[in-house]
Design a protein around this nucleic acid. Structure first.
Lengths: 348, 348
DNA sequence: TCGTTTCACTAATACCTATTAGCATCTGGC
DNA sequence: GCCAGATGCTAATAGGTATTAGTGAAACGA
């Protein structure tokens, strides 16, 4: 075995040592027999020199010459740490890793972006180190996404995402469909007035998607109101209004909100699910009070990660494809917080 | 905003559109004012064209021109899936991600290697897509490691690793030190005869490291025997021998073995830790029977991941550095399975 | 012997960026 | 007017690989 080279050997080095041209080295390396003939003795000589000097092709040069590295980038709009954040991202990443492995792609995690995360810095972006990228995060910078779209760089957003101008590709959970099903379930069980409650911003897309599903299910029925609360301190008053207004079923957008509704109902000696049924539209990733068997939906994070990866590879391998959006359905969990209303509970 | 380009614009395109040279585009992009002056009007004109056409620098070209992309590869010798395997790898990955983030590097997970994993394929390796790589796995191909070493490609192995020829860099858990401490702890508590038991291969490096620690602690004492078992069915006989031989403390290499020893001791109405103290030298990653408060060591996976990443970056940023090995100490867990022997338990 | 085909390569070039010596012009001081 | 320095660029080249038109030599058949 030869002494370690001071720098990594190039094809030009191998060519000189084997007494052939650099083009021949490339042809031998890439087994281009169908196009250009190489004699067995020349081939063997080149391979021997490669092995002896530990030649490794430079992927940057390869990429520059041919265009692709089969690398998928993963960019998050928040740092993956602390751990609570990691719990949110982990199932997505798991799905992405599995699908990338099956499709023969490697994953480049953009960990270096640090605290003040920007896709573009100094006029360029590290995302371009990968053939294309998967974007995810709860509070993304829309201008950066639009700029990335305009740059022609292939990417898929994980989550429902609408931007100004031309559309972007995304894979979203079908919150609308799942919320509609849960709400219809309440009506089918005999609940006549069903309300919708959320905590915080009504304009966020996932929030609007869920409300849309609720309104669809409630279209031909006596719908209950849609409430937007600023803080948990308003929940007790809300439960009071529900009782007075004859509401026997509620669809709660966040698990935290659902838990508070449950607590207030118990304080009022209301039984759940008979006096008040509660369906929850989110599975809190920091699930702490694991005692309640909630009726609700499961956010299909792992499956979304897989789907997004598959869609991105499709975009990469067929550059004529325009922006695509796909929905992944949310499984429902039957749970114990939704059931038929008590007879005579039509408190009107 | 101009229509999306059929292909990504290059610096040559921007130069033509702005009426300057490609070199000027590069200088503007990289803010090279200290070296070459660019007038404000020219700068602005170039920046406008870049923004208008969504120019993104090609990192492959950048790398080829300048040499580094600040990417660390992560290569595992087994697929990261199924999930049991992922539980093993996850803490290492967590440490690596954190350290990479702090040092300003991105992580490239080599997911595409698939089932029949080889570092080298078709004369090249995808590892070279990264500036350097972290290797980990329980059953690596030593020839491939040696070949990689000889290629001059920078890497660090996670775990104690010895190969023929020149050494390789690695970061290992200090099993020797921790085992020595646990064994000395038994002696200090009054145990006079302490045995060592393992299940399976005595030649594996982590096994030898642990035994080494045991022998050090036992050097000036009445050491108990070192047992190597083929299967769990031999454990009952072993416990019988311990009783007859006056052994009151045992250092078990694997948690599975320790659990079986505990079960056999209970069947013989031996109390733990008084009649028989059990120290365990591994934290099973598939920890299932979480009821026992084991005295033992913690494998510092996350810390090892961090350390390996730090060492690799050191190798990358100082190419004159020779192979390094570092030990990460294993924290001890006090637990409840080790305590003073019962008075008069000197059953001899 | 001549023309055609086969064999086995190679010279040149493309890919895109960063770097730097070189050059033309202008300005200010003597 | 001459010279030195400042200003503002540019032409050329390096980095390493993949690709292909072109070429020289050998073999074969008429």
């Amino acid at each position: 075995m030869s002494p370690r080279p001071a720098r990594r050997p190039t094809q030009a080095d191998i060519a000189r040592l084997a007494g052939v041209s650099q083009a021949t080295v490339s042809l031998v390396l890439n087994e281009r027999d169908a196009d250009v003939r190489i004699s067995p003795s020349t081939r063997q000589r080149v391979l021997n020199v490669m092995r002896e000097w530990g030649y490794v092709a430079n992927p940057s040069a390869r990429s520059l010459a041919g265009g692709h590295n089969r690398i998928i980038g993963v960019y998050t709009f928040e740092p993956v740490f602390p751990t609570t954040s990691h719990d949110f991202y982990f199932p997505f990443l798991l799905g992405m890793e599995q699908e990338a492995a099956e499709l023969g792609y490697d994953l480049l995690l953009f960990t270096s972006a640090g605290g003040g995360r920007q896709i573009f810095r100094d006029g360029s972006t590290r995302l371009a180190l990968a053939d294309g990228a998967l974007l995810l995060g709860r509070d993304p910078n829309l201008e950066e996404i639009e700029r990335l779209r305009d740059s022609g760089y292939p990417f898929v957003y994980v989550g429902h995402r609408e931007v100004s101008g031309a559309p972007v590709s995304y894979v979203a959970a079908d919150y609308t469909g799942a919320t509609q099903q849960l709400t219809e379930r309440l009506f089918e069980l005999g609940h006549e007035r069903v309300a919708y409650a959320r905590l915080g911003d009504a304009d966020a897309l996932p929030s609007r998607d869920r409300e849309k599903g609720f309104r669809r299910a409630a279209a031909r029925r006596l719908a209950g109101p849609v409430w937007t609360l600023e803080s948990l301190s308003e929940v007790d008053g809300l439960v009071g209004e529900m009782v007075r207004g004859g509401v026997t079923g509620v669809v709660a957008e966040q698990q935290l909100l659902a838990e508070e509704i449950l607590a207030c109902a118990r304080r009022r000696d209301l039984s759940v699910p008979e006096d008040l049924s509660i369906a929850v539209l989110g599975d809190s990733t920091g699930a702490r009070g694991g005692e309640t068997d909630w009726t609700g939906l499961v956010v299909p994070r792992e499956h979304m990660g897989r789907q997004a990866t598959r869609l991105l590879v499709q975009l990469l391998e067929d550059p004529e494809t325009t922006a695509q959006s796909e929905n992944v359905s949310c499984p429902l969990t039957p749970g114990a917080t939704v059931g038929p209303p008590t007879e005579g509970t039509s408190r009107r």
